Amino acid sequence: MKITIQTPHLTVIDDFLSDIEFASLATSLQFLSYRSMHSKGWVKAYGLPSAAVLQSELATRGIVDSTPPGMSLVGNLVERIAQPDEALQSHYPQGITGKRATVTGRIVLSGVGAGLNWHNDAESLLGAYVFYGHPRWGSSWGGELLVLADGEAGDQGRPESPGRQPRQVIGDVGPDFMLDVSAEQYRNSIGHGTFVSARPNRLVLLTSRVHHRVTPVTPSAGDQPRAAVVGFFVSDANPS
Rank of each mutant, 00 (worst) to 15 (best):
V230H: 09
R106L: 03
P200D: 12
L116W: 00
A114N: 12
T60N: 14
P219D: 11
P200Y: 01
S124H: 06
G151V: 08
R158P: 08
P69M: 11
I5E: 07
S50I: 11
I3R: 00
P93Y: 03
I5G: 02
P216Q: 13
I96V: 08
R187G: 00
D236P: 09
A128V: 11
Y129V: 04
F177C: 01
L29Y: 01
T7K: 07
G143C: 09
L48Y: 02
P162L: 07
N188I: 07
L58R: 04
I190H: 15
G231W: 15
T215D: 01
E144Q: 08
G133K: 05
G133T: 12
M71E: 06
E152A: 03
E86T: 14
N201F: 03
G70P: 10
L203C: 03
A153D: 09
T194V: 05
I5A: 08
R202L: 10
V78K: 00
M71S: 09
L145E: 12
Q94A: 04
K99T: 12
R202V: 15
H91Q: 10
G163Q: 08
H91E: 10
S197W: 15
I3F: 13
A59M: 02
S161W: 00
I63C: 10
F232V: 11
V64Q: 10
E123I: 14
V12N: 05
T97L: 15
D180P: 06
P159M: 13
I63G: 14
E123A: 12
H134D: 01
W137I: 02
L58C: 11
R167G: 07
E160D: 14
L73Q: 06
I107N: 15
R167T: 11
Y34R: 02
A227C: 13
A26Q: 04
F232D: 03
L54E: 07
E152C: 08
F131W: 02
I63K: 14
N120G: 05
H211A: 14
D176C: 06
L203Y: 02
F177N: 03
R106A: 13
L54V: 02
